[in-house]
Each structure stands twice: as structure tokens, then as C-alpha cells.
Design a protein around this nucleic acid. Structure first.
Lengths: 316, 316
DNA sequence: TGAGGGCATAAGCTGGGGTTATGGCCAGAG
DNA sequence: CTCTGGCCATAACCCCAGCTTATGCCCTCA
């Protein structure tokens, strides 16, 4: 009974968990179906539930949000203006859920999958789900299995014949592999908007960066290696302010203002867009690194691997 | 009992709804808390549930995904490698849900809110939720109400004193209002990857575009007005292939290959990134348009409105 | 050698979401 | 002008996912 808690307070406050204020995925999917099909009943049929179930689901969603979403008529249902807006927001949630699903499905994929992919953490986190969705759209019967690890682990899997295609970020191609650049990434220095670095007028110098304790991932992460290498000439990296186990944790700490950090552009894209973090320009250094697809030397990817490779080429 | 259905089939297939394959928001939030706090019990406490509830929730999520997510020990719980990956995917779902919540909350906002915003559909759909999240992070007690409509409606609200700040996309500032450019948008010609236009070697000419029936929104949308104006010198727009009520519907039709369309870059960003749609370059024309914040002439925004305005300035 | 933090198991309750059955409403056909 | 069919709402009932409280085991650390 966590209901009669802070209810009389103002409407703000994540005291009430997000899950209680946002309709669940089933409801959002249903709403999308209603928008597309123009009728509660048809949407219900498509989703495989009964018409009254759909009706009540939509109704309770409207109650929860406090807004009328669909205009019912004896000839069907149309979205209201608010409904159209809500539907588009819902669409983004559903798309994120689809990416989650595509990734999770690959993660549990059996070893006998038709396409076995090994990828670095960063690529697996931020790019692969999108590729997998595109792949599924074009070749729905391709079962994909995913194994995530660092560059060395990816190379090992490929050479052992336990993976068909690999993806790594880094400065060079691991020995024994051929590769193709499929994109570019760079490390960015970030800080919370309230951090002094976010208000600097002048660019940061590399020496300053090297001298400042940062929030970093533990040793062994590709990000950290690149950083180590780049700062080697400037006295090396200062002792970290915090050493955390996951990129997520690092971002959370940086967002909460614990200190500055250095992270992949891919990892902080969302945070920068939402201004939870601010990029701190660094003088003269780019911290760039290529994203590569890799495979055992001489064995050009064929079949599903070749197809997935094709999907990745056109992306940023 | 929709369980014993297509279970023996391959793992592909959205026969089973997404909602049954993706943990619900509560579970994802819980997982994020576990990742951040390093213990099931602490996460449970933060989320306001009992420790056994958290334990069972995480366990059933692991079962559902078929992957171990956390490594339990008597000293706490750490994410596994797969868990870290899943957590980051989960984070994106939760962030989309937060945007949904921020938007929905504003949509139902009472008229007595401290900040009343009127915005064009495109801006309300794609940019406002992010701003609202940022605003809430910095000024948690600002209650925002949102009203979405076309440029004329936004102007009307502002002039009637029923809104404090407006956002419009278009070529000029409505009469009676002052404004500031806060970003830029452009219309892009898009087609499904399988569409002939997606494989063209040569750029499309404006005349070709004008002569081709397109999938468009109904009359009255800002997008369509810009397009009408731009093609007026080339024989005007051909009769539409399809006229649909919402941007969502237009995109869905284009993705499914019904034909080419012209949409705001903001609206198709996701689809382009996921290669569900492909941009078709057009020779010599940019179809650009400014995004503007607007307010009644002479009444510079102050208070919360000024603050929100500040948040928008740094974004793309 | 307690004491305490952390996780798991067990037993029982609750409510949201599902189902079937039915009724009202409106449009267009006969 | 009535009939028929598509669409939505209401009612009554059912079930299971997820919550709670009450324990117990395990490990670490003072």
C-alpha cells in the first residue's frame, strides 16, 4: 500500500515510480495499433485480445494520463490531437523496447544460430540493436547470437571459429583478422552542467585533462586504453576520482555532478542532447577511433554475415 | 491462454507481442537501481518494495530473457557482462518512458500551471519532452502545461494571454509576436529501402519530385505548406498518393513501401538511423525551415519561460 | 563468536487485465 | 422504414503476476 503517501503534494516528484505513471508496453502497442487501424476492435483483433479488453485498456490509459486519446464513434475511432502526440511519444518507447528485445534475443541466442556475432561493449550497446532490427525486417528468419567482450575476446572468438563476424572499436585491427571501417567514434570530455568545466570559456588543455582526477571505468575498458595512450605524453592519467564497473555507473556519477569524465560519443549522445551532461572541448586533440567490422583473414563474410555487414556500412 | 501457440516455431516472429518478451518498466527501473546501488536489497528499498519482491522480480526477468543478469554474493550483487548490456538497453527504454511521462504530464497540466507552453506538433513531439525533462531536473517545482497546434493556434494562445511561451516551425514569425531562432529543421524526401528512389545514383530534380504522387499529411500541416510553397514554381505538388491524418501514419505507410514521402528531419531521424527509410537527395533545394521560440511582442519571457527558453538555445 | 548485511524460499492476498455475454447506437441496404 | 452489420460500452467472472510478511542460510567483519 504505497498509495496514500505523498499524494497531496504537488504533481512533481518521482516518488511515485515511473512505471505507475506510464502505461505499460502492452497498452502503448495497443494505442499504436488503434492509431494505425482506426478502430478499437480491429486493433484488438490484431493484438490478439478481445474488443472489450482493448476498450477498457485504452480507457484506463486515458484515465491514467488524464487526457482523452481517441474519439469514439459508431464508425470507428480516431486519435484526438493529444492522442496523436501521445502516440508519437509512445512510439519512441516501443521502439526502444524493440531494440531491447532484439538485443536480448541475440544475447540468449543458441550456439547453433545462423549468424554468430561478437562485438565490443560499446558497439553492442549502442549500434547493434538497430542493426538487428533492420536485419530482422529484411531477413526475419536469421537467428542471431551475440557475444560481447573486449577486442581481444572478439578476436579470439573469430579465430576459434566461434563467431562469424566481429565488431571492434580501437586504433588497429587485431592480428589475424581483416576488417573494414564502418564508422567513427570519438571520446568526449563531459561534465554535469553545474560543473565549472561546463562554463569554461577556454578550451581545456590536454595537460589539464591529464592532471585532473576523472570518473572512469575500471581497467581493461577500450575507452580507458585509448585515453591512457593519448595522455601518455602529458604525464599520464591522474589517479581516478572514481573507478566504476559500468559505463552506466560512470555516466550516472558524472550526471550527478561527482566530477568530469571521458566517454564515447556514442555513450553520451542522449545525455548531451538532454543537457544532463555538457561536452568540454579539448584543445588540439580529437580522441578519435574507428569502428570496424572484422573477420578472420582471408575469409570474406558471406551469407547472413555479409548481409549484416551491408546494413552497417551506411550508418554514421 | 495465448501461451501454447507458436512456441515450437523458431524464436523469430512478433506473433508474441513485444510486451511479453520485454520486462515491464517497473522491472527495468529496478534493474537500473540494482546496477547503480550494487545490491538487490538497497534497490528494493529505493524503489519502495520489499527485498523478496525485488529478488523475485529480477529472477523472473532473468528467466524471461534466458540470461543471468546479476551475480549474487553475500556481499551484494554485481551485473554480469550480459547484465551490463541489458541494463544499458533498459536505460534507453526508461529514458523514452521518462520523455513520455514528461510530455503526458504537461499535456494534462491545469491552466493554473506556472508555465503554459504552446507548441507546434513537430516541436511538441520531438523536442519538448527532452526540454521538459531538463527543466524538471533543474526546477523540479515548475508545473508545465502544454497545448499543441499549428502556428496560427500557437499565436492565438499567446496573444490571448493563455500561454507564456510558444514554439513554431516555419518561414516567418506570426504577426504580433517576437521570436528567436532556436534551431533548424529541414524537410527530407524519404522512401523505403526497397523503393527505386532509394537506389538512385543521381539526385532527384525538383520537377521530378513535384510530378510524383507522394504520401502526405492532410492539408493544414506546416510541413505540407512549406512543400507547397517550394514546389509552386515547378507545376505545384502532384495529387497525393495517400493523404493520412498523422505523421505516424505517413511514416508507417512510407516504411511499408507504399511510396515516397516528404517529412521533417526531426520526424524521420529514427527511421533513417535504423534504415527503415532512406533519404533521397534532391538537387539544389534545401527545404530548410527555422524553429523559433515566440512570445507576444514586447513581452520578453521572464521567470520559468525564460528558463525554458535558455534550455532550448543550446540544442541542435 | 556473535552480529549484521545480503539473498532465497514459503505461504497467502490483491487487483489489473483478460474472457464471454449482452446491449445500444448509427449508417447504409433492401 | 425496418433490417443488418460494424463498432463500442457494460457486466460478471476468473486468473495469475507481483506484492507482503515471516523465516532461514551464508558470508564477513569486529
Amino acid at each position: 500500500m504505497a498509495r496514500a503517501n505523498g499524494e497531496e503534494r504537488s504533481d512533481a516528484g518521482p516518488v511515485v515510480p515511473l512505471a505507475h505513471r506510464v502505461p505499460d508496453l502492452g497498452a502503448l502497442e495497443l494505442l499504436l495499433a488503434v492509431a494505425r487501424l482506426g478502430s478499437l476492435g480491429r486493433a484488438a483483433r490484431e493484438r490478439g485480445i478481445s474488443q472489450p479488453a482493448a476498450s477498457s485498456r485504452i480507457r484506463s490509459m486515458e484515465q491514467q494520463l488524464g487526457v482523452a486519446l481517441v474519439e469514439r464513434s459508431p464508425r470507428g475511432s480516431r486519435l484526438t490531437d493529444a492522442g496523436a502526440l501521445v502516440t508519437d511519444w509512445a512510439r519512441r518507447v516501443v521502439e526502444a523496447a524493440e531494440a531491447f528485445d532484439a538485443g536480448a534475443q541475440a544475447l540468449r541466442g543458441r550456439r547453433d544460430s545462423r549468424l554468430r556475432v561478437a562485438a565490443s561493449m560499446t558497439i553492442a550497446e549502442y549500434l547493434l540493436p538497430g542493426w538487428l532490427i533492420a536485419l530482422r525486417a529484411q531477413r526475419p528468419d536469421t537467428a542471431v547470437s551475440l557475444l560481447a567482450g573486449n577486442s581481444a575476446a572478439v578476436a579470439e572468438r573469430l579465430l576459434a571459429g566461434e563467431a562469424d563476424l566481429g565488431f571492434v572499436e580501437g586504433l588497429d585491427v587485431p592480428a589475424g583478422l581483416d576488417g573494414a571501417v564502418i564508422g567513427h567514434d570519438r571520446l568526449v570530455v563531459v561534465a554535469a552542467p553545474a560543473h565549472p568545466w561546463a562554463r569554461r570559456r577556454t578550451e581545456l588543455t590536454v595537460a589539464e585533462l591529464a592532471a585532473t582526477p576523472l570518473i572512469l571505468r575500471e581497467h581493461g575498458s577500450g575507452t580507458r586504453q585509448v585515453l591512457d595512450a593519448a595522455l601518455a605524453g602529458h604525464g599520464g592519467l591522474a589517479a581516478p576520482l572514481l573507478e566504476l564497473a559500468s559505463t552506466t555507473a560512470v555516466k550516472a556519477a558524472a550526471v550527478s555532478g561527482a566530477g568530469p569524465s571521458v566517454l564515447s560519443e556514442l555513450a553520451v549522445g542522449e545525455e548531451l542532447a538532454a543537457r544532463r551532461l555538457v561536452e568540454v572541448p579539448v584543445l588540439g586533440t580529437r580522441f578519435g577511433r574507428d569502428l570496424r567490422a572484422v573477420w578472420p583473414s582471408g575469409q570474406r563474410p558471406a551469407g547472413p554475415a555479409r548481409h549484416l555487414l551491408g546494413l552497417t556500412r551506411a550508418l554514421p
